[in-house]
């Protein structure tokens, strides 16, 4: 799809969408939203650029392989954050019992482990959406004709 208006609009709008996505991820413990919605917004901006330009420009931002690695890394970070609680001697995904500082309710640095978990969740969801898009648009070029 070669269209000048779509290209210029998406190039102008994409950074603002990404900043909003990061804002939603980082304020997940205070306001509506969180890792899931913020990650979806961030991933949608990456897909928007790749769709309005071409796949080479999209791969310059984030390639299929990088997205796959980030996807696994987000899940790994979630599990490691949960295992901190086990290492200290509390439950899996323990928050205050594992020694995370809870802070004051309503402050930015509060809610202990939820802040870290939300950040990892955002990375995971954003890279999952990019991977979904690449899987549809690339098809089975690498795996060959299966039927």
């Amino acid at each position: 799809m070669e269209d000048q208006i779509v290209r210029i609009t998406s190039r102008l709008v994409a950074p603002f969408i990404q900043v909003y996505g990061i804002y939603v991820i980082l304020h997940g413990h205070l306001s509506p939203g969180g890792g899931f919605s913020g990650g979806a917004i961030f991933g949608a901006s990456l897909v928007l650029v790749a769709l309005s330009f071409n796949l080479e420009v999209g791969a310059k931002q984030i390639s299929h392989a990088t997205a796959s690695v980030l996807e696994s890394g987000g899940a790994l970070g979630f599990v490691i954050t949960g295992l901190v609680g086990v290492a200290v001697g509390a439950n899996f995904l323990a928050n205050r019992a594992a020694g995370f500082p809870l802070g004051e309710t309503g402050e930015f640095f509060s809610a202990g482990a939820i802040f870290i978990i939300t950040a990892f969740l955002g990375v995971k969801v954003a890279s999952t959406i990019v991977t979904l898009f690449y899987n549809i648009i690339e098809g089975e070029d690498k795996s060959g004709d299966a039927h």
Partner: peptide, 20 residues
């Protein structure tokens, strides 16, 4: 929160996947 997820996923990502 449902409104935000709908606007991001139900509108944004679904439309992008359909266009792809």
């Amino acid at each position: 929160d449902v409104a935000m997820v709908e606007a991001a996923l139900g509108t944004g990502v679904t439309t992008l996947l359909l266009i792809a």
